Simulated assay, not measured.
Amino acid sequence: ESNEDTLSKYPFKFVLQAVYELKNFELKVNYIVKNTDNKKTIFSIGGHPAFNANFKNTSISANQREFDRYTLNGNYLNPSPIEKINFSYAHKISRSDFLNDALILKADKDLTELFLQTNVPDSESDEKQLERSTRIAVAGKNLKFFCIWSKNDEKADFVAIEPWWGVADTINSNQRLENKFGSNSLSAGQKENFEYSMSFL
């Protein structure tokens, strides 16, 4: 929760709870944000789950046919989508996808879901060369964005699928928090839940 140190950098009082629930092959994550201030609070929040992935055979599909895609200019977001990413077929991930950092997708549905299909080492085998196919679903409720990220580096053997309710500052930001693109607000005393899940299929 907020304290003197946070208030010196972020001038809002709040309580944040993170609740994790593991059931069978699904991990649910629930962020509960409560405004304990006597004024409106403005914030962004999101997750950063990443998964071991073999880039020779990794693809991502979705429960939605296409998404608007945003790009980053350094650390800043261009608020005008540059193109649409089509998920009519699984999108095979390559290093070139991350030349400009992340793929940032606009979420349009009440429940947005991305599916990661990859090969990983078979932990049940003594022979390291054996692999098995793994499928993971990451789903978020009322998301604003989904981020797909890895490094443009052969040593990076992971892909992050990140549910976001907020995004980086834009290239044309006026640096006023109340005008920040993609942010959230809560009135005094209000609270809100932000939920996502990971299912290991």
Rank of each mutant, 00 (worst) to 15 (best):
A107H: 04
P81H: 12
H91C: 04
L111F: 00
V120M: 08
A102S: 15
N86T: 09
E113H: 00
P81R: 13
D97L: 06
F98H: 06
L103N: 06
L111N: 05
L77W: 02
N86K: 08
K109M: 09
V120S: 08
I82Q: 13
E83L: 03
I93T: 10
N86I: 07
K106N: 07
Q117T: 13
D108C: 05
I82G: 10
A102E: 06
D110K: 14
D97F: 07
F115N: 12
E83H: 02
S80H: 11
A102M: 10
K109Q: 12
R95H: 14
L77I: 12
Q117I: 08
D110C: 00
L103Y: 04
V120A: 05
N119H: 13
V120Y: 03
A90R: 05
L105A: 01
P81L: 11
L116V: 05
N86D: 15
F115R: 13
I104T: 10
Y89S: 15
L103W: 00
Y89K: 15
K109E: 13
P81I: 03
F115C: 11
D97N: 09
N119L: 14
N78Y: 05
I85Y: 04
A90S: 15
K84A: 03
I104H: 01
L114V: 03
D97Y: 00
D110Q: 09
T112P: 04
S88I: 14
E113V: 10
D97K: 01
I85V: 09
L103M: 14
K109H: 00
D110F: 07
K92V: 13
S88H: 12
F87P: 03
K84M: 02
P79V: 05
H91D: 07
N100M: 13
T118R: 10
T112S: 06
I82D: 15
N100V: 09
E113M: 12
H91S: 03
F115M: 12
P81T: 06
Y89C: 10
